[in-house]
Structure formats: C-alpha cells, structure tokens
Amino acid sequence: MKNWFMVTLVGQDKPGIVAAVTRALYEGGCNLGEASMVRLGGMFTIMMMVEYGGDEAGMVALTAPVESTGLRIHIDAVQGTLHRHIEPNIRVTVYGADQAGIVCETTEALARLELNIINLETDVGGTDEQPIYILHIEGVTDTTREDIETALAELARRKHIETRVTSINTLIG
C-alpha cells in the first residue's frame, strides 16, 4: 500500500536542486503529486506531495543524500488525496506602504466573512527606503464581492492601503 508524504525542502538556491531531489525520489520508487516551488528571499523552497511504498524512515533515508548538499528537509506522513481541487471564486489584492499587520488584519477580515483561502502570496516591492507590500489572495466564499469590498474598505481607510476585490469567473468549455 502506498503512503503520501509532504516533503518540504529549504536551502540556498542554486541551479539543479529540483532535478537532484526529484531524481533521488524517482530512483527510490516515489511518485510525485502536487508540488509548489518558490524562491523566497533568495532561498529555495519547495513542498511536494510524494507517494511512496515504504514508511517514514525509508523516506528519510531516501532523501538523506540531498540533505548533504546543504538543503534542509522536513518529512510529514499525510492523508493525501489527488483530484480534490477547490476552485477559487474570488481574488483579493491588497497593497500599500509596507507596515506590520497587513496580512493579519486582511485575513482576519476575510475569515469573518467565511472566506476560505486557497492561494496566498505576498511580496515586498519598491525600494529599501520606501518598500511597498503586496498581498494577493485567491479564495472561495459565498459572500458577495460587494460585501467583501465593504469589509476591506474599512481596513483600507484605517491603514492607508489599497484593496481590490474581483470575481474569478472560471470558463469551462
């Protein structure tokens, strides 16, 4: 019986990391599911669903050689399932002069509206002297776009930030 593991890797970014890791997993008899790699602050990060016939100790042994290249690896046995995508129906963008609390206050406001976040990305742009913070969220909710807009408008006034709410209207054809 196959088991799912969530494998997280963090380390200094350099070319060939993904190839080295996935080669080790492939040769160890693993099968990849959903994965997301992103460079954060110049660091390499990846999370992968990995299907494997062995147990957690086997998985650790399999990925040990990768760890010797300076990557930190974290492995969790999980109850993974494929083909369970949830489609986001709303997109929220918040941006403004960088300040503490933007993510916290935005996501609290969205949680009160029972919006379930599916994707969240934040970034810092601008310059060292005048950084701007950008928060981008995709989620699913029964609350109307207008009601989300109203809730975030209060936040926008108080923190002097910009908020945008748009519907995601997925075309199926």
Binding site: H85, E87, I168, N169, T170, L171, I172, G173
Partner: peptide, 11 residues
Amino acid sequence: AREGCLSVPDF
C-alpha cells in the same frame, strides 16, 4: 483569466 475544459477534468 481562469479556464477549465470538459476534456481536461479537475484542472
């Protein structure tokens, strides 16, 4: 914008 397809289920 976001699209899906009858011929490509679940993506």
